Amino acid sequence: MTAARGRTGRPPLTEARRTEVRREIARAAVDLFVAHGVTATTGEQIGRAVGLSARTVWRYFPSKESCVTPLFSAGIATLTGFLREWPPGQPLDRALDAWLTTGPDLAGGPDEVTVRALVRLTRTEPGLRAVWLQTYDEAEPAFARALAERAGLPPDDLRVTIRAAMFNAALRAAVEHYAWRDASAQGKQGDQGEQAGHPTAERELEATLRQALTAAAEGVR
Rank of each mutant, 00 (worst) to 15 (best):
R116N: 05
R116L: 07
L118G: 07
L118H: 08
V119M: 10
V119T: 11
R120M: 12
R120W: 04
R120D: 08
L121R: 11
L121M: 14
T122S: 14
T122I: 07
T122P: 12
R123W: 15
R123E: 15
R123I: 11
T124W: 08
T124D: 14
E125S: 14
E125C: 13
P126K: 06
P126S: 04
G127R: 11
L128P: 12
L128W: 13
R129S: 14
R129I: 00
R129F: 02
A130V: 15
A130Q: 15
A130N: 14
V131C: 12
V131Q: 07
W132M: 07
W132T: 02
L133V: 02
L133G: 01
L133I: 01
L133K: 09
Q134S: 10
Q134V: 01
T135L: 00
Y136R: 06
Y136C: 00
Y136W: 15
D137W: 11
D137M: 02
D137T: 04
E138R: 02
A139C: 01
A139W: 03
P141S: 02
P141N: 04
P141H: 07
A142H: 05
A142R: 06
A144W: 01
A144H: 03
R145V: 11
R145K: 05
A146M: 01
L147K: 07
A148S: 09
A148P: 06
E149I: 01
E149M: 02
R150Y: 08
A151K: 09
A151P: 02
G152Y: 06
G152I: 07
G152V: 04
P154G: 08
P155T: 03
P155C: 03
P155K: 02
D157T: 04
D157H: 13
D157G: 04
L158A: 09
L158W: 03
R159I: 00
R159W: 08
R159P: 00
V160P: 03
V160H: 02
V160K: 02
V160Y: 05
T161F: 00
T161Q: 10
T161S: 08
T161A: 09
T161L: 06
R163N: 04
R163D: 12
A164W: 01
A164R: 03
A164L: 05
A164Q: 03
A164P: 02
A164H: 07
A164F: 01
A165T: 08
A165Q: 11
A165D: 06
M166W: 05
M166F: 06
M166G: 04
M166D: 10
F167M: 08
A169M: 07
A169W: 02
A170I: 01
A170N: 08
L171I: 00
L171P: 00
R172K: 09
R172A: 12
A173C: 11
A173Q: 13
A174E: 06
A174L: 02
V175F: 10
V175M: 09
E176G: 04
H177L: 11
H177D: 11
H177P: 01
Y178G: 03
Y178C: 09
A179Y: 10
A179W: 07
A179P: 12
W180M: 08
W180L: 15
W180K: 07
R181W: 09
R181A: 15
R181V: 02
R181L: 04
R181H: 14
D182A: 13
D182R: 14
S184V: 14
S184I: 05
S184F: 10
A185Y: 11
A185N: 10
A185D: 14
Q186A: 15
Q186K: 09
Q186Y: 14
G187F: 10
G187P: 13
G187A: 14
K188Q: 15
K188C: 08
